[in-house]
Amino acid sequence: MEESIFEAKDLTKKYKGTMALDCVNLTLRRGEIYGFIGENGAGKTTMIRLITGLSFPTDGKMTLFGKSGAKELQKQRARIGCMVETPALYKNMTAQQNLEAQRIQRGIPDKECIQETLKLVGLTDTGKKAVRHFSLGMRQRLGIAMALLNDPEFLILDEPINGLDPSGIVEIRELMKRLNRERGITLLVSSHVLSELYQTATQYILLHQGHVLEELTQQELDEKCKRHIAIKTNDTTKTTTVLESALHTTHFQVMPDGVIRLYDNLDNMEDVARVLSQAGLLVTGLSLAGDSLEDYFLHRIEGD
């Protein structure tokens, strides 16, 4: 079994005068749920379109399920399910007919999969209603159903919760988690609703202006976003000693840039400041920090 589902090496996509992706290096591992984060035009959809073959890279190399080269990539795409941007549907057909068309096109022999997939996304009661009469949320669910029909190993969903009502969002979130947990499907989910992504993803890829800004795990993100007092002094070693002796805490972390993150005493910032100055330390920075995913993302792109 391949550990890596998808790899991009120096992947570049250039449109007339615009660099949509600039030498992107990325590895997606099996069994994870990847949250793809980026502003409009960051290159998320471009990356998805390259993976699904709708677009061609200007430069660089892609590997899918360990295989590279145009022919092999094309073959491996049969193992993918995807919904890129808004769902592409036959509006004159019913949900069942749309899935039947997809089943025929993919050469899936078992017709049972249609009902199973409709049940999975909660669209069993649409009957003979044509897709043109579907709400945005129903279309979104049908788009996801079409991506799931071939029981993919790698599921790519671009803005899957667009147009869904709150209960629909919860259902789709649970569905994504269940597919990952029970079927071992690797997911790549792009969304603008970062709070939603935060509840689903296990890994995050931050994309900005065609570059991968950062890749981090859920734990790393939690750690970075955790509320803390950021302390900067003229003597880091002495500061840690003071924190241990005067405040009786070891719940802090020294960052590579010398900033100390203190995770308790959050309501006693004045005490912390007093203790440090009484110990003769020159405090050059003392602030309450900690981000939501949105804040973290915004700080990262502002700092870039």
């Binding site: 699904t52 073959g53 709708l54 094309q74 073959k75 491996q76 795409r77 049969a78 193992r79 993918i80 995807c82 890129v84 592409a88 549907l89 036959y90 997809q102 096109q105 993919r106 079409m146 071939n150």
Partner: peptide
């Protein structure tokens, strides 16, 4: 809808 055929590996 032609996108489905391409992303399905045809």
């Amino acid at each position: 809808v032609i996108d489905h055929e391409i992303s399905a590996g045809h």
